[in-house]
């Protein structure tokens, strides 16, 4: 999993890939993020973005939705074919279609332009926190590779320490947000978690957050861990089935 790569060295700068066609935004966002200590590589269209994503390791992707050539949603989908790197979409339209297709394509979160750099940085930090997520172990140091601590839900096995998820023995590749969401469910087995709680605990949003990010992430998670595993409780939220 690429998750553990993030923040592997305490001083290693976080690499951000910014794909944005508007030159002013591209330059100013890159400069602003660099002031916050990020290292930014920028691309002006989707194909260039894909190329630079393949050439170099990045810790987080910042994608505009409307891009010439390969658009942000297509780019997101292409990236997700092989990588679980955190993806933040930026949409200038902010309407349901853009947001929903971005999240469906595998983005972890979205922001609507114009966005303050401080907000952008906060969202990126939240994404990176999820990506480097290590649950604080309740147990003391384990004697060995703790098979006994694996959480089992039907054919699904979750190793909360090694952050590995297996379905019927096969490893499942989960994006950081999906993994974080699954662990949240696993920590509350059989308990219904409402959208707001998930939005707060997984995405760091308050009441102003968009609950669609939860719904769409649950949808993506279902595709990977089995549709029946996560049950919808109408009007309330979701729960993980044992």
């Amino acid at each position: 999993m690429s998750v553990s790569e993030v923040g592997s060295g305490p001083s290693a700068p976080v690499m951000v890939l910014l794909v944005e066609d508007d030159e002013v935004i591209r330059k100013t966002v890159a400069m602003a993020l660099e002031r916050y200590g990020y290292r930014v590589s920028a691309a002006g269209d989707g194909l260039a973005g894909l190329e630079s994503f393949r050439e170099q390791r990045h810790d987080v992707l910042l994608l505009d939705v409307m891009l010439p050539g390969l658009d942000g949603i297509g780019l997101c989908r292409r990236v997700r074919e092989h990588s679980q790197v955190p993806i933040l979409m930026m949409s200038a339209r902010g309407d349901a279609l853009d947001v929903v297709s971005g999240l469906e394509a595998g983005a972890d979160d979205y922001v609507v332009k114009p966005v303050d750099t401080s907000v952008l940085v906060a969202r990126i930090r939240s994404l990176l926190r999820r990506a480097s997520f290590h649950p604080v172990s309740a147990q003391p140091a384990e004697p060995g590779p703790g098979v006994a601590t694996d959480l089992v839900f039907g054919d699904l096995t979750i190793d909360p320490h090694g952050l590995e998820v297996r379905r019927a023995g096969e490893p499942v590749a989960l994006a950081p947000t999906e993994l974080r969401l699954l662990l949240e469910f696993a920590a509350n087995p059989g308990i219904v978690l409402d959208r707001r709680t998930l939005l707060r605990d997984v995405w760091d949003y308050g009441w102003d957050g968009d609950s669609r990010v939860v719904d769409l992430c649950v949808q993506r998670l279902r595709k990977k861990v089995g549709a029946d595993r996560i049950e919808t409780v109408r009007g309330f939220g979701y729960k993980l089935r044992r």
Partner: peptide, 22 residues
């Protein structure tokens, strides 16, 4: 139309917002 207007207005505005922050 609204979505297009939003895009056309927000894109330069975003440039403006981030530039002034710099």
């Amino acid at each position: 139309f609204t979505a297009d207007v939003a895009h056309e207005l927000r894109t330069p505005l975003m440039g403006l917002v981030t530039s002034t922050e710099l």
